[in-house]
Design a protein around this nucleic acid. Sequence first.
RNA 1: GCGCCCAUAGCUCAACUGGAUAGAGCAUCGCCCUUCUAAGGCGAGGGUUGCAGGUUCGAGUCCUGCUGGGCGUACCA
Length: 593
Amino acid sequence: MKNTLNALLITAIENLQAAQVLPQDIHYTLQIDATKNKAHGDFATNLAMMLAKSAGMPPRALAEKLVAALPEHESVTKTDIAGPGFINFFVNEQAKMAVVTQIHQQAAQFGQTSTGQGASVLVEFVSANPTGPLHVGHGRGAAYGASLANLLAFAGYQVTREYYVNDAGRQMDILATSVWLRYLELCGETFRFPSNGYKGDYIYAIARQLEGKFGQTLRKPSFEVMAGIVPDDGETDAQGQPGDKERHIDDLIAKAKALLGAQDYEHVFNMAIHDILADIEEDLAEFGVKFDNWFSERSLMHSGVVDAAIEKLQQAGKIYEQNGALWFRSTDYGDEKDRVVVRENGIKTYFASDIAYHFNKLEREFETLIDIWGADHHGYIPRVKAAMDAMGTNPDALQVQLVQFAILYRGGERAQMSTRSGQFVTLRELRDEVGNDAARYFYVSRKSEQHMDFDLDLAKSKSNENPVYYIQYAHARICSVLQQVSEKGFSAFDAQAGLANLALLTTEHEQDVAAKLAQFPELIGRAAEAREPHQIAYYLKDLAHALHSYYNAQPLLVEDDALRNARLSLLVAIKQVLVNGLTLLGVSAPERM
RNA sequence: GCGCCCAUAGCUCAACUGGAUAGAGCAUCGCCCUUCUAAGGCGAGGGUUGCAGGUUCGAGUCCUGCUGGGCGUACCA
């Protein structure tokens, strides 16, 4: 219907241009909105206000001319001029119902758009360090990323979902060493566990597995392990010098490597990362979040891509040496300060890997890169874009979507979290507690850059306080009505007959719900472009409300065959759109509740 | 200090990207189940959109300056 109005308005403009009322060289973007207020008809355009200046006449006068120049159309029953110069369109009832037939035909495809025109997009999300189980903070990124990826695919993009695995670097060594130390404890060694080590219970689980596979063969006596190690925080060495937790853990890592030897250390390291990644993958899969690729940072280093990227920056003349380190001159591209890519000790920074990773993404010929990051990484954006620019690739290809932290509340109390201390609410606990559907819906029902309060008690309440049930209930209700057709002895639902009699659906509720259904495809396009899956959540709530309201207003299973089938075909259309929308959000559509 | 993000009903959040009278849910108060699922519906109250300017036909939305909160400001990841 919008397209029809669009065409009519363009004709009107051309007519006015031919009649010299409007100049030839006008610029405008035609905007047609569904109205919020019924008094304003079904659709409205602000065209006259936009063109008033270039036409050299008041908006309302121009609006009158536009309306006069508008061709007749069977679906448009009335046009009005209102307010400062809006043109309001009233559409006839049959035209509004046409969408129902369309939904029946397109079914699961209804709402798909060509917004993306097949452009290839890489959506990278979660990418949590594999140093422990996912916590509720990662859950938001997972839910947002998965829903956004679904949405983009539905809107005509070619989408690849990727998880970047930070399996290199010091954190991984801390992890491996933590596992080994717990293993030593299981073997019967006693010592104080480093304050900077990973203390979660899952470390013990991995250590037990290590013991199961290697027995006591990796055991070293604790006095040997601790010999010559800088003491931990809160301790002092033989000379009475205070300890340092960072140097303490680094010494322990070095000692682990030395005592175990490269091969055995690798065994510990690999078992730790393998176990944790397997757990993360399973966790996400249960949450309905699947990836096409798990991209390893180590593979990036081993294949020489990191060196190649640094080389590329060097060729561009953007690398210099200072204090024994290699720096990237990111300030040339608007960054606050230059950044180190190779440290004085020869170790490449995480940033170096990241430069290489983004270079690699573009080499894989993705047109758009969407990175979903926690908001605490926002300072990173300028330097990554700077590197892309310096390497001769287009920095605008990268779009970073920041996701704010979710603050968890339980019983009105704020639940704190930190991975290192092992004190955090895991995503798995959250899913067990509130269920996947409620968790997915809650996460994605707030704009991603908005701080979010996640009320556990509300999310798990199976009551009218919980919006996800409201939507699912609408779906279950429709299923129930369809079920009742035979139970009440009516002849089976006949979709053909129903669609042929849509003209019978003239009540206000029926008109409202049909108008709502017609908005779904444009919503998809808009939400995809804005990278805002939360719009889907709100739309579904509105649609569910329209259904509940309709349901309560009038009986649906009436004696009259033609009318009953028409109403049922409308219900089937609503059901379909609920399913299509819920699917995008990764929320199930139960048939009964 | 500097940079980025945020601020909307008592609470949690929307607002079609600059449009008409700023909307939902929860909470509060009425009403509606002998009839298709009451996890529902109908109605009422509740607002100087943090503050002050500016831009224009028109600002919650854009620009400037404040205030308050979050995050960042490493040769960590």
